[in-house]
Design a protein around this nucleic acid. Structure first.
Length: 606
DNA sequence: TTTAGGG
DNA sequence: CCCTAAA
C-alpha cells in the first residue's frame, strides 16, 4: 500500500513534468477536461492543430506495431515517463526501458500513434509483470509518456488530465480499502475527483464501482481491490460489473475475459482509431493484467495475435464508418467529431468498434454515469467481404444488412433471442475465429445487462441509426447460381475522385496500387481495384459528355455529380496517357525509358 | 500480388 | 462493385 502511494506521488510529479513538455503540442482544447477517460488518437498538424488520425495513419500505426515494439513499449511507457529524459528504470522497477524507441520515433506522428498503441498493448504485460501497485504507477506514466512523445498524440492531454489532475486524491483511493471504507460523501468526492463532476447517486456500491472503473479506465488504478471487494472478480468486471454484480461464476467469465482482452488488444493494435480511446485499452489491459498470471504467456499470446494483421477490410470498415459521417469531404477534420456527440452524456463518443474476426467488439462510452466510461459491447459486425459463411448469415437475415442491426438489436433486446446471436456469431466465427469464448462472453454480458443500462446505453449507442453505425451500404445481390453476394457500395466523394485523378496524373493510370498507397492512402477502404474501376468510370463519363461543356456537371445521374473540371481533367489525363502509350506500343522500350509516370508499362488505357 | 477486363 | 484470369 504504502509503496503504491509513493509511486503515485512520483507519478504525479512526473505527469506534471511531462505535461509541460506536452503542452507544446497539444492540448489546446478544453475538452480534455470534459472527459478524462476517453481519448482519441490524433496527430498534431503542423500548426499545432489536432487532427484526427486518418485511416492511413491508423494503418501505418498498425504496421508499426506489427513490425516492432511489442515488449519494448512497455518499457517505453515507463521510460517515457521518466524517461524521455532518462531511459532508465522506473521506480517501480521496470527493468526494461527503451526510451530510445520513443525518442527516435517521436518524430513521426505516426510513430506517436504507434507508440500509443504500443504503449497500450504493452501496458498490459507490464502490468502483469509488475505487481499491481507498480503497475498502476506505470500505467500512469505511460499516459504521460505519450504526450511527451512528440506530439501527435493528443490523447496524452486528456490522459494526463484525467489521471493526474483530476484525481490527486486517488492516492487514498488506491487502497482498496479506501473505497470500501469511504463514506458516501467521500465517495462523492472521489467521484468528483475522478470524473470531474458531481454525482447525486447515493448508492455506495455504485459509486465505488464507478470510481473504480473510472480509475481503471483512465489510469490504471489498482481497482482490483475495489473490485474484488465488490465481487470477487476483478477488473474484468468493470465491464460487466457495472451492470450488475453478476459474475457469480467468476471463472467462466474470467476465462472469457482473457480472450476478450486479447481481442481488444489486438484490435487496438491493429486499429487505433482516433476514436479509439486509451481508456479502452486500459480497460483491456487491466483485465488482461488480472487474468494473466504469467506474463510470458500473455506476452506471447499477444505477440502472436499482434502479428496477425487486420485485413484491409477490417480497417476499411472503420474508416468507412467514419467516412460516412462526413461523407468524405474533409476527412481529417471531421473525423473526430465524426460521431455525433450525444446530447445526453458528457461526451458520447461513439463507440469505436473493433471487429475481430467474426465478432465485433466495440467499446462504447458507457452511460454509467454519463461519464465517459467505455464499455465494450457488441456493436456491429464487421462488414466483410463475402465470406463463405455469408450466405448462411444471409439466410438468417434475409435483409442482408443486417448483421449490425441484428446485433444491436440483440444488445438492446435483453431478452432477445440468444439464438440469433449465437447462431450468427457462430456462423461468423466459423470462418476464422476458433474461439467462441469471447463472443459468448460478450453476448452474455449483454444479456446480463439490465434493462436500465441498456436504455442508457441506447442513447449512446445508437448515436445515429442512420449513419455510420449502421452498416455501410451493403446490398445483397442474389446471384444466378443461388449464392448471394454482398455488395457494398460507398459513394465516391468528390475528394476521392480528385485524389484519384491526381494520383493518376502523378503516377499514371494503371499504377493503381501505387496510387492507392501514395496519393490515396487516406482512403483505406478503396482498393486498388476500386481505383481502377472508378477511373474507368471516370473515363467513360468524361468522354461521354465532357467535350463540350465545362458545366458538364449536369449529369443526369443524380448519384454521381462529377464536377466538370474533374471530368475534363480526367479526359486530359486519359488523352495524355493514351498518347504516351501509343509510342510505347510502337517502340516499347524507348518510351518506357524516357517516360516517367505515364509511360511505364501503362497501357494507356482506353 | 497486382492489373485488366468482364459481368 | 464483384470476380477472375493473366502477368
Amino acid at each position: 500500500m504504502e509503496k503504491v502511494v509513493e509511486v503515485e506521488g512520483s507519478d504525479e510529479g512526473k505527469f506534471e513534468e511531462t505535461g509541460l513538455e506536452t503542452s507544446n503540442f497539444v492540448l489546446s482544447s478544453p475538452k480534455n477536461v470534459t472527459d478524462p477517460v476517453v481519448y482519441k488518437l490524433v496527430r498534431v498538424d503542423g500548426n499545432g492543430r489536432l487532427v484526427p488520425a486518418t485511416d492511413d495513419e491508423l494503418m501505418e500505426v498498425e504496421g508499426l506495431l506489427e513490425n516492432e515494439k511489442r515488449e519494448t513499449h512497455i518499457v517505453a511507457d515507463t521510460g517515457q515517463a521518466l524517461g524521455c529524459n532518462s531511459n532508465e528504470v522506473s521506480p517501480s522497477g521496470m527493468p526494461q526501458l527503451e526510451s530510445s524507441e520513443c525518442l527516435s520515433q517521436s518524430e513521426n506522428t505516426e510513430a506517436d500513434t504507434e507508440k500509443l498503441s504500443a504503449y497500450l498493448e504493452e501496458t498490459v504485460p507490464s502490468g502483469a509483470k509488475s505487481s499491481s501497485d507498480d503497475h498502476v504507477t506505470q500505467s500512469r506514466r505511460v499516459g504521460v509518456c505519450l504526450k511527451p512523445l512528440d506530439g501527435p498524440l493528443e490523447g496524452g492531454s486528456s490522459t494526463s488530465t484525467g489521471c493526474i489532475s483530476s484525481k490527486p486524491d486517488f492516492s487514498k483511493l488506491k487502497g482498496e480499502i479506501c473505497l470500501d471504507n469511504l463514506s458516501i460523501k467521500e465517495l462523492h468526492e472521489v467521484f468528483k475527483a475522478t470524473f470531474g463532476r458531481d454525482t447525486t447517486v447515493k448508492d455506495k456500491l455504485w459509486l465505488k464501482r464507478r470510481i473504480a472503473m473510472g480509475l481503471t479506465n483512465s489510469c490504471d488504478v489498482s481497482t482490483t481491490t475495489f473490485v474484488i471487494k465488490d465481487n470477487k472478480l476483478v477488473k474484468k468486471d468493470n465491464e460487466d460489473g457495472f451492470n450488475n454484480v453478476n459474475l457469480g461464476a467468476g471463472k467462466e467469465h474470467l476465462a472469457v475475459a482473457v480472450e476478450y482482452n486479447e481481442d481488444l488488444l489486438n484490435n487496438l493494435s491493429s486499429q487505433i482509431d482516433e476514436h479509439q480511446t486509451t481508456s479502452e485499452v486500459r480497460l483491456g489491459n487491466n483485465v488482461v493484467e488480472n487474468n494473466f498470471a504469467s506474463e510470458d504467456l500473455a506476452a506471447d499470446q499477444r505477440a502472436a495475435k499482434r502479428v496477425r494483421k487486420p485485413t484491409k477490410r477490417y480497417i476499411e470498415e472503420l474508416s468507412e464508418a467514419e467516412s460516412k459521417e462526413y461523407s468524405g469531404r474533409s476527412i481529417a477534420s471531421t473525423k473526430n467529431i465524426g460521431f455525433r456527440p450525444l446530447p445526453s452524456k458528457a461526451h458520447a463518443r461513439p463507440a469505436r468498434n473493433v471487429s475481430l474476426e467474426g465478432r465485433t467488439v466495440i467499446t462504447r462510452l458507457d452511460s454509467l454515469g454519463g461519464f465517459g466510461i467505455q464499455v465494450p459491447c457488441v456493436y456491429r459486425i464487421r462488414r466483410s467481404r463475402p465470406r463463405k459463411n455469408v450466405t448462411a448469415l444471409l439466410k438468417f437475415h434475409p435483409s442482408g444488412m443486417g448483421m449490425t442491426a441484428t446485433l444491436i438489436k440483440k444488445g438492446f433486446d435483453v431478452h432477445g433471442s440468444q439464438m440469433d446471436n449465437g447462431s450468427m456469431n457462430k456462423v461468423l466465427e466459423a470462418k476464422s475465429t476458433p474461439e467462441q469464448a469471447p463472443e459468448q462472453f460478450v453476448a452474455e454480458s449483454k444479456k446480463e445487462t439490465t434493462p436500465t443500462d441498456m436504455g442508457q446505453n441506447m442513447g449512446l449507442k445508437y448515436v445515429d441509426p442512420s449513419g455510420d453505425t449502421s452498416d455501410d451500404n451493403v446490398v445483397t445481390v442474389p446471384t444466378a447460381k443461388g449464392g448471394i453476394r454482398r455488395k457494398h457500395h460507398r459513394a465516391w466523394t468528390l475528394s476521392e475522385v480528385m485524389k484519384l485523378v491526381e494520383g493518376v496524373s502523378k503516377y499514371g493510370a494503371g499504377r493503381w496500387s501505387k496510387i492507392k498507397r501514395l496519393a490515396f492512402a487516406s482512403y483505406s477502404y478503396r482498393t486498388s481495384v476500386d481505383l481502377k474501376d472508378k477511373w474507368r468510370n471516370l473515363l467513360k463519363a468524361s468522354f461521354a459528355q465532357t467535350p463540350t461543356d465545362k458545366g458538364a456537371n449536369s449529369r443526369k445521374h443524380p448519384s454521381m455529380p462529377i464536377p466538370a473540371p474533374i471530368l475534363l481533367r480526367v479526359r486530359e489525363l486519359a488523352e495524355m496517357q493514351a498518347q504516351a502509350s501509343l509510342p510505347n506500343l510502337s517502340t516499347g522500350k524507348l518510351s518506357a525509358c524516357g517516360g516517367r509516370s505515364v509511360n511505364e508499362t501503362r497501357p494507356g488505357y482506353l
